[in-house]
Nucleic acid binder design. Structure first.
Lengths: 189, 189
DNA sequence: CCCCGAGTGTAGACACCGTCTACCTACTTT
DNA sequence: AAAGTAGGTAGACGGTGTCTACACTCGGGG
């Protein structure tokens, strides 16, 4: 394994193990057993290394999408929505890093390719579902990609809000599953 | 105006003017014309100062909710949803700070009070709408606060995803308005 | 009147961070 | 054998949050 790959792996392990605050260049170097300046031999800076880690996160998310069980388009789409929220809840640090513009480089080609692949896969699930369902809850003829963007946002915000802290302070703290059920009910009936 | 209030104002101005990266204790002190250690006379640390700024942000958001035009519950709820996304798009730095757990103290009493007030106001709008509408798209009897959490998450994710970068890279970049229209269509028909 | 304690600001130090640069070592290629 | 390159090391610089010692300005009790 190349030194570059080893650094990415070490950073990812450190991320899931100690949170996004711990993923510092010097911390990664120490965890990898090299001197503090060594990572800069393989990455132009912190943003490039963390972008590679975030790309790994999107790839993992994409793999989850590829492992959906067989079934009707509706069942597959529902499973994908659950998988997205589940991914965020079970990998909070990775999920946070993937959308932290200040830590990664949003223009990095590999990163936009990986995130676009996730979106395209998700949009295709939406398209297949809408092509089959006849009792269309949404305005007919709406671009499936637009529906996918809206639904992705709904899932994303749900996960983000839940990670942020009980969705709304102490007064009312629904589980992500119950809120997700409402969201899916709204979109898919 | 107390020195504490002046620091909060200075920090808020610096935030909207130069982004969340510029809101550093030393930067705020310099902008306020005091020495780098002065802010610690009034705040226990950076998190407490930034929590006060975020509280200000939630208060501004609440004021927007109080300025909704009169109309049917449905119209008021729709306007509130637009206002939320509009707030995020027009105040991206403040919006980001309000949900950055690493910069603020999520347990800070004033902050949870302000964010809970926003949620409660929004949940009340949802409750009034659902009490009136008879063609219920969602499962009847669902707790309005649960619906509010789901819908808030949808709005929040939409704003977050759009701020993150075109919602999905270069291949497909809908405007927040068009995606919001789909979201409202899903929830409110 | 003096003094002194509380509130506020200053300046320096410390550890940590990202980044840059100079140097060094081992291996590959010609 | 010579040369070049990939990779690692060590030190420096400026920036950051935080702590601590010190100074200055008040208003009220001896």
């Amino acid at each position: 394994m190349s030194a570059r790959q080893r650094l990415i792996r070490t950073a990812a392990d450190l991320l899931v193990g100690s949170g996004v605050e711990a993923v510092t260049l010097r911390g990664i170097a120490k965890a990898a057993g090299v001197s503090h300046g060594a990572p800069l031999r393989h990455f132009s800076g912190r943003a490039e290394l963390l972008s590679a880690v975030a790309t790994l996160g999107f790839t993992q998310l994409l793999q989850r999408g590829a492992q959906l069980p067989d079934g009707t388009p509706r069942e597959r789409l529902t499973a994908a929505c659950h998988a997205y929220v589940d991914f965020a809840v079970t990998n909070p640090a990775m999920f946070e890093l993937m959308f932290r513009r200040d830590l990664i480089d949003p223009e990095e080609p590999g990163l936009v390719a990986a995130s676009s692949a996730v979106f395209d896969t998700f949009a295709e699930l939406v398209r297949l579902d809408r092509a089959e369902a006849d009792d269309d809850r949404l305005r007919p003829g709406t671009d499936p990609r637009l529906v996918a963007a809206s639904l992705w946002g709904a899932l994303h915000g749900l996960a983000q809000l839940w990670l942020w802290g009980g969705l709304a302070g102490a007064s009312f703290a629904p589980s992500p599953e119950s809120a997700l059920a409402v969201t899916l009910d709204a979109y898919l009936g």
